[in-house]
Design a protein around this nucleic acid. Structure first.
Lengths: 347, 347
DNA sequence: TTGTATGCGTTATCAC
DNA sequence: GTGATAACGCATACAA
């Protein structure tokens, strides 16, 4: 007799009938309301379990505003190989953590690629989520306001908004300044005195400019001169790293260390160096950024700066859950987590 | 006065008041019910637009069963660099298409990594989605049944279920058999007579075994002998490709073409070949599989089999939307799409 | 062509 | 401790 229920999605009404109590009691019991008697509670929960009962999400959100969903907003324009790989790893992390917290994830781009329409406004007004996890650096102020007007928490993750709005909500970033500084200091500590840094073209992205600042700081601290010719932007691709010997031959010749801000550029360079009989790390020491899996298996294996994505994801998720569960007016928290340096044979 | 509404998420009740009609008329108008008079309809839709109106998803799903969400189910164990990259690209494609169709995507793993609990059952009983897009080869029969009992459409995408359940629902796969055949035929047509195929370890994954079958077929068709020693499984990593000269030196020596079933393995091999002065494609012709972005920029650029992920994503999405919109009892459709071959300098 | 009334499954405010 | 009952926002059968 229960077989039917097991397939058909039971409701609290069904459970009430089976338990011989009212739906109010069932509702309370399944929400662990302490007012219900232990015996009743156990009985009801047993029945619920045996029926594979789950709350009807629509009904629940209608009546209590709780959806059990979190919006994970990303930028549709992130299609770059390297970036999308990193972001993808971050997402898997987020998914994993939210799942432990019984939250589902609605994945969406901030803006429709074709129409430019805001998916954020849409999702807010549809009341589909309990909060926003934002991995996007160009959300409009209007949209931030829309979310806040709806009383939903915002947690900014990984991407620093381009139009800096100070600290209006919780933010968890990787410290790119420190990352740049660490990479450069590492090369300096190995004896490098003429250090090139190569970064991807990226119009207004803050992360690379921060890393360059960290690079500068490290030079300064060691009384090494800063030479702006040693900061070069090339496409974020294997080939641009490979072509460095042709595109900037004179610079490469005078350099004893290179800090690549994208691993993939470093991979190309390593290959080219090998072809030219240039010893890595003997002649030039090399370090990358992002610590993609291939760093471990390339020859020579690539030292790299590892961003704390696991920790970032965890902090961000915990924070948004906390905001959702307790609308206490905590001050927004903005944290820049330190990356770590993974030493391999290229440096 | 409308300002408040614009922020606060209007309801059809609000619109009814503003338009001077009943909520039923508003509901009809916003659902494009032809029974409502053109004038009324326009008026109502204008107001709705001006208020940024969106249906309350919870209410709507309660009353009409429509959630506007699709579950995209993946396998949490897919963490491999290469696979996860491909899957990620597939997901972005799916997201993009579903967005055009006004569908939101709930991204979830089939089973909780820690408890093993079925997220599918949970999401079905919570009534959170209108259909399932499955990119997972080990969904339990029980779960498939749960979905179908709930009357929700299932579309299987990219991953062929391990325990083959014939054609119980719509399925869109890349034709791995043909892919293997195409790659091999290509090498044969270039004059190769001793062709090695290298594939990733992967216990029971069907895709690689299919490619091997295609490889065999191609040999057969050209009256070339099949030598099982020329089918080798190694880890799906750059390094395993690189190490081939050490791990199977005799085989490499006798071979004039290699079909790598993962691009990344080929990348490693290309580097190793270069170091040893082995000319690619002069001495050995090489082709990979998946056509990851790096194929274009590696030296020599890597020929590769391109899976039709855009087309697969599109077919799968269109199909599931069609199923959702019209519960007509169409026969399940199972399609194996042909991959294409991208020729570059490695072959 | 439009309005009234009912129900969807849940929570919450009352009573008892 | 527990049970009626209203309310959440929308769709729809039925009236008008």
């Amino acid at each position: 007799m229960n077989l039917l229920f097991m397939l058909m999605s039971a409701t609290i009404k069904d459970i009430a009938k089976l338990a011989g109590v009212s739906i109010s009691t069932v509702s309370r019991a399944l929400n662990n309301n302490p007012r219900v008697k232990k015996g009743t509670m156990d009985k009801i929960q047993d029945i619920a379990k045996s029926l594979n009962f789950e709350f009807n999400a629509g009904a629940r959100s209608l009546s209590s505003k709780i959806t059990g969903n979190i919006a994970l907003v990303y930028d549709a324009h992130i299609n770059g190989f390297e970036v999308s790989l990193y972001i993808n790893q971050l997402f898997l992390e987020v998914r994993y953590i939210l799942e432990q917290m019984d939250m589902d994830t609605i994945l969406l781009t901030g803006y429709d690629v074709n129409t430019g329409a805001s998916n954020i406004k849409r999702i807010v007004h549809k009341k589909k989520v309990d909060g926003f996890l934002i991995v996007h650096d160009s959300i409009t102020n209007d949209d931030y306001k829309t979310i806040q007007a709806a009383g939903l928490p915002i947690v900014q993750l990984h991407m620093v908004p381009r139009n800096d709005i100070s600290v209006r909500f919780d933010s968890f970033y990787s410290d790119n300044f420190m990352g740049g500084q660490m990479a450069t200091n590492h090369l300096i500590s190995l004896g490098c005195r003429s250090i090139l840094t190569v970064l991807p073209f990226a119009e207004e992205s803050k992360e690379y400019s921060q890393r360059v600042l960290g690079y500068k700081k490290a030079l300064e601290d060691s009384d090494l001169p800063f030479n702006k010719e040693l900061v070069v932007s090339v496409e974020c691709a294997y080939l641009s790293g490979y072509n460095l010997f042709n595109s900037i031959p004179k610079i490469i010749k005078q350099v004893d260390g290179i800090f690549f801000q994208a691993d993939i550029q470093a991979f190309g360079f390593l290959t080219a160096a090998r072809e030219r009989g240039i010893d890595i790390p003997g002649d030039i020491k090399v370090i990358g950024y992002d610590d993609v899996p291939m760093c471990q298996t390339v020859i020579p294996s690539l030292s790299s700066i590892h961003q704390p994505r696991k920790e970032l994801a965890e902090l961000a998720c915990k924070r948004i859950i906390q905001r959702i569960n307790s609308p206490i007016n905590l001050k927004p928290e903005c944290r820049y987590l330190l990356p770590s340096i993974v030493l391999r044979t290229s440096s």
